[in-house]
Amino acid sequence: MAQVFTKSMARNIFYGGSAFFLLLFLVLTFDTTKALPDRDNRGAITPEVARGKLVWEQNDCVGCHTLLGEGAYFAPELGNVYQRFGNSKDAIMGFIKSRPKEGIPGRRSMPQFNFSDEELSAIAEFLIYSSKINTAGWPPNIQG
Protein backbone atom coordinates (compact mmCIF):
# COMPACT_ATOMS: atom_id res chain seq x y z
CA MET A 1 0.00 0.00 0.00
CA ALA A 2 1.60 3.23 -1.16
CA GLN A 3 1.89 6.36 0.91
CA VAL A 4 -0.97 8.04 -0.93
CA PHE A 5 -3.29 5.60 0.77
CA THR A 6 -3.30 6.80 4.36
CA LYS A 7 -4.55 5.25 7.57
CA SER A 8 -7.36 7.75 7.84
CA MET A 9 -8.56 6.78 4.36
CA ALA A 10 -8.57 3.15 5.47
CA ARG A 11 -10.49 4.11 8.58
CA ASN A 12 -13.08 6.00 6.56
CA ILE A 13 -13.59 3.05 4.24
CA PHE A 14 -14.19 0.87 7.29
CA TYR A 15 -16.72 3.15 8.96
CA GLY A 16 -18.38 4.33 5.77
CA GLY A 17 -18.47 0.92 4.11
CA SER A 18 -19.74 -0.89 7.19
CA ALA A 19 -22.42 1.70 7.89
CA PHE A 20 -23.62 1.69 4.28
CA PHE A 21 -23.85 -2.08 4.00
CA LEU A 22 -25.42 -2.45 7.44
CA LEU A 23 -28.08 -0.02 6.32
CA LEU A 24 -28.57 -1.90 3.06
CA PHE A 25 -28.88 -5.13 5.04
CA LEU A 26 -31.57 -3.55 7.21
CA VAL A 27 -33.46 -2.33 4.13
CA LEU A 28 -33.37 -5.82 2.60
CA THR A 29 -34.48 -7.28 5.94
CA PHE A 30 -37.40 -4.90 6.05
CA ASP A 31 -38.37 -5.83 2.50
CA THR A 32 -38.09 -9.53 3.35
CA THR A 33 -40.46 -9.22 6.29
CA LYS A 34 -42.93 -7.54 3.92
CA ALA A 35 -42.64 -10.36 1.40
CA LEU A 36 -42.80 -13.25 3.86
CA PRO A 37 -46.58 -13.48 4.41
CA ASP A 38 -46.94 -14.79 0.84
CA ARG A 39 -44.28 -17.44 1.30
CA ASP A 40 -43.99 -18.65 4.87
CA ASN A 41 -47.35 -20.42 5.26
CA ARG A 42 -48.09 -18.37 8.38
CA GLY A 43 -51.81 -18.94 8.01
CA ALA A 44 -51.26 -22.55 9.00
CA ILE A 45 -49.64 -21.72 12.35
CA THR A 46 -52.31 -22.96 14.73
CA PRO A 47 -51.75 -23.29 18.50
CA GLU A 48 -51.09 -26.98 17.83
CA VAL A 49 -48.36 -26.15 15.28
CA ALA A 50 -46.77 -23.73 17.75
CA ARG A 51 -46.95 -26.47 20.37
CA GLY A 52 -45.31 -28.86 17.90
CA LYS A 53 -42.48 -26.42 17.31
CA LEU A 54 -41.87 -26.29 21.05
CA VAL A 55 -41.80 -30.10 21.23
CA TRP A 56 -39.38 -30.06 18.28
CA GLU A 57 -37.14 -27.64 20.16
CA GLN A 58 -37.38 -29.20 23.60
CA ASN A 59 -36.22 -32.54 22.26
CA ASP A 60 -33.40 -31.05 20.20
CA CYS A 61 -34.57 -32.71 17.00
CA VAL A 62 -32.27 -30.37 15.07
CA GLY A 63 -29.33 -32.04 16.83
CA CYS A 64 -29.59 -34.95 14.37
CA HIS A 65 -31.92 -33.83 11.56
CA THR A 66 -31.95 -30.94 9.15
CA LEU A 67 -35.09 -28.86 8.64
CA LEU A 68 -35.04 -26.85 5.40
CA GLY A 69 -31.41 -27.96 5.18
CA GLU A 70 -30.33 -26.53 8.53
CA GLY A 71 -29.32 -28.56 11.52
CA ALA A 72 -27.21 -31.68 11.90
CA TYR A 73 -26.37 -34.08 9.09
CA PHE A 74 -26.78 -37.34 11.01
CA ALA A 75 -30.40 -38.08 10.11
CA PRO A 76 -32.74 -37.33 7.19
CA GLU A 77 -34.07 -33.93 6.12
CA LEU A 78 -37.54 -33.33 7.56
CA GLY A 79 -38.73 -30.29 5.61
CA ASN A 80 -40.32 -32.66 3.10
CA VAL A 81 -40.83 -35.73 5.28
CA TYR A 82 -44.60 -35.29 4.99
CA GLN A 83 -44.43 -35.69 1.21
CA ARG A 84 -41.84 -38.49 1.50
CA PHE A 85 -44.18 -40.38 3.81
CA GLY A 86 -46.99 -40.16 1.25
CA ASN A 87 -48.68 -37.08 2.72
CA SER A 88 -49.59 -39.12 5.78
CA LYS A 89 -49.67 -37.65 9.24
CA ASP A 90 -50.24 -41.12 10.67
CA ALA A 91 -47.05 -42.39 9.06
CA ILE A 92 -45.02 -39.64 10.75
CA MET A 93 -46.57 -40.31 14.14
CA GLY A 94 -46.26 -44.07 13.71
CA PHE A 95 -42.57 -43.81 12.85
CA ILE A 96 -41.68 -41.69 15.87
CA LYS A 97 -43.77 -43.90 18.14
CA SER A 98 -42.22 -47.17 17.02
CA ARG A 99 -38.53 -46.41 17.64
CA PRO A 100 -36.92 -49.23 19.68
CA LYS A 101 -35.88 -48.11 23.17
CA GLU A 102 -32.47 -49.79 23.01
CA GLY A 103 -31.72 -48.78 19.43
CA ILE A 104 -30.72 -51.05 16.56
CA PRO A 105 -27.46 -53.03 16.92
CA GLY A 106 -24.66 -51.40 14.94
CA ARG A 107 -26.91 -48.85 13.28
CA ARG A 108 -28.18 -45.32 13.79
CA SER A 109 -31.59 -45.18 15.38
CA MET A 110 -33.84 -42.40 16.58
CA PRO A 111 -34.33 -42.48 20.37
CA GLN A 112 -37.69 -43.47 21.85
CA PHE A 113 -39.06 -40.19 23.23
CA ASN A 114 -42.24 -41.61 24.84
CA PHE A 115 -44.36 -38.76 23.47
CA SER A 116 -47.99 -38.42 24.46
CA ASP A 117 -50.57 -38.60 21.65
CA GLU A 118 -51.01 -34.82 21.84
CA GLU A 119 -47.28 -34.26 21.46
CA LEU A 120 -47.08 -36.68 18.55
CA SER A 121 -49.93 -34.96 16.77
CA ALA A 122 -48.44 -31.53 17.45
CA ILE A 123 -45.03 -32.39 16.08
CA ALA A 124 -46.59 -33.97 12.97
CA GLU A 125 -48.69 -30.84 12.43
CA PHE A 126 -45.56 -28.71 12.80
CA LEU A 127 -43.80 -30.79 10.13
CA ILE A 128 -46.83 -30.55 7.84
CA TYR A 129 -46.82 -26.75 8.23
CA SER A 130 -43.06 -26.66 7.54
CA SER A 131 -43.45 -28.77 4.42
CA LYS A 132 -45.65 -26.11 2.82
CA ILE A 133 -43.26 -23.20 3.16
CA ASN A 134 -42.16 -21.82 -0.23
CA THR A 135 -38.47 -22.80 -0.27
CA ALA A 136 -37.71 -21.81 -3.87
CA GLY A 137 -37.84 -25.42 -5.01
CA TRP A 138 -35.47 -26.92 -2.44
CA PRO A 139 -34.75 -29.81 -1.85
CA PRO A 140 -33.91 -31.04 -5.35
CA ASN A 141 -35.92 -34.26 -4.95
CA ILE A 142 -38.06 -36.21 -2.52
CA GLN A 143 -35.04 -37.80 -0.77
CA GLY A 144 -34.22 -34.43 0.78
Binding site: M1, F5, T6, K7, A10, R11, I13, F14, G17, S18, F21, L22, L24, F25, L28, D31, T32, A35, L36, R39, D40, N41, L68, G69, E70, I133, N134, T135, A136, W138, P139
Partner: peptide
Protein backbone atom coordinates in the same frame (compact mmCIF):
# COMPACT_ATOMS: atom_id res chain seq x y z
CA UNK B 1 -3.26 -0.55 11.75
CA UNK B 2 -3.83 0.55 8.17
CA UNK B 3 -3.93 -3.08 7.07
CA UNK B 4 -6.28 -3.92 9.93
CA UNK B 5 -8.74 -1.22 8.87
CA UNK B 6 -8.78 -2.40 5.27
CA UNK B 7 -9.20 -6.05 6.22
CA UNK B 8 -12.09 -5.50 8.59
CA UNK B 9 -13.70 -3.05 6.18
CA UNK B 10 -13.74 -5.78 3.53
CA UNK B 11 -14.96 -8.31 6.10
CA UNK B 12 -18.06 -6.28 6.91
CA UNK B 13 -18.68 -4.95 3.40
CA UNK B 14 -18.83 -8.51 2.07
CA UNK B 15 -20.03 -10.33 5.19
CA UNK B 16 -23.11 -8.30 6.09
CA UNK B 17 -24.97 -8.78 2.81
CA UNK B 18 -23.17 -12.13 2.55
CA UNK B 19 -25.61 -13.32 5.22
CA UNK B 20 -27.87 -13.75 2.21
CA UNK B 21 -26.17 -17.05 1.33
CA UNK B 22 -28.21 -18.54 4.18
CA UNK B 23 -31.45 -17.15 2.80
CA UNK B 24 -31.63 -19.21 -0.40
CA UNK B 25 -33.93 -22.05 0.70
CA UNK B 26 -35.57 -21.18 4.01
CA UNK B 27 -38.68 -19.47 2.70
CA UNK B 28 -37.12 -16.05 2.11
CA UNK B 29 -37.54 -14.20 -1.22
CA UNK B 30 -35.57 -15.40 -4.25
Amino acid sequence: EKWLYVIIAMALITGLIGTGHHFFWIGTPE
